[in-house]
């Protein structure tokens, strides 16, 4: 693992969860910016657990652009668990701040929990996101300091505290403590 300011290079064996995330974000990045947050970030960096969903934040987009993205998602063998009609997905879910889930066809898990960016925390996660390079693939994730602060201050379940500890210990020498404090204050 090589760590620099805005990029981490991982020379890892790609597991099925990583493959799922890489395949989905390869479609997504043709249409929009994005940032991955929460549990998968810890798993990407070696936590010995899995998850049923990967949390994904996407900047606000209009219906026309969403329809183009949705068509591309469908044509790459994913489906939306919540609804079929893109207008329903857009108007009844995303525009009302409700996440929708995309899985591979013929499966329900794992799935991408797809949500439009709303809050200052979401916006900061995207704006200050970092890249993780795995071979030729690049994933955009929320800053590690934000992950740690969010898991400890907001979520707080045993699983979240363990994820936070994993990241804290693994990146002990590279975490920006000023940033961590800033995010902790933001989350109060």
């Amino acid at each position: 693992m090589k760590i620099s300011n805005k990029q981490i290079i991982l020379d890892k064996v790609i597991n099925e969860l990583d493959r799922f995330v890489i395949d989905f974000t390869n479609i997504l990045k043709k249409h929009t910016n994005y940032v991955i947050v929460s549990g998968y970030v810890s798993i990407l960096f070696g936590r010995t657990r899995t998850t049923e969903d990967i949390d994904l934040l996407v900047p606000k987009m209009n219906l026309v652009d969403f329809k183009k993205l949705y068509q591309d998602i469908l044509s790459n063998n994913f489906w939306c668990i919540n609804a079929e009609n893109p207008e329903v997905i857009y108007n009844d879910y995303l525009n009302k701040d409700i996440a929708v889930r995309f899985a591979r066809k013929d499966a329900a898990v794992p799935n991408m929990e797809f949500k439009l960016i709303r809050t200052i925390v979401d916006k900061t996660s995207l704006k200050e996101s970092i890249e993780v390079k795995i071979g030729k693939n690049i994933l955009k994730i929320s800053p590690l300091e934000m992950q740690i602060a969010f898991k400890k201050k907001i979520l707080g379940a045993p699983k979240d505290m363990e994820d936070a500890r994993h990241l804290e210990k693994l990146f002990k020498d590279s975490l920006n403590m000023k940033k961590l404090k800033k995010y902790e204050q933001m989350l109060r």
């Binding site: 693992m1 064996v13 597991n15 099925e16």
Partner: peptide, 28 residues
């Protein structure tokens, strides 16, 4: 967790991730 992080730091990415992949792939 502390042990595993130490293990990760003292082994190549390919080695710890090979073991992680066994767990994740078997669950999926």
């Amino acid at each position: 967790i502390d042990f595993w992080v130490e293990y990760m730091k003292t082994h190549e990415d390919k080695e710890w991730s090979r073991q992680q992949a066994i767990i994740i792939n078997s669950v999926l």
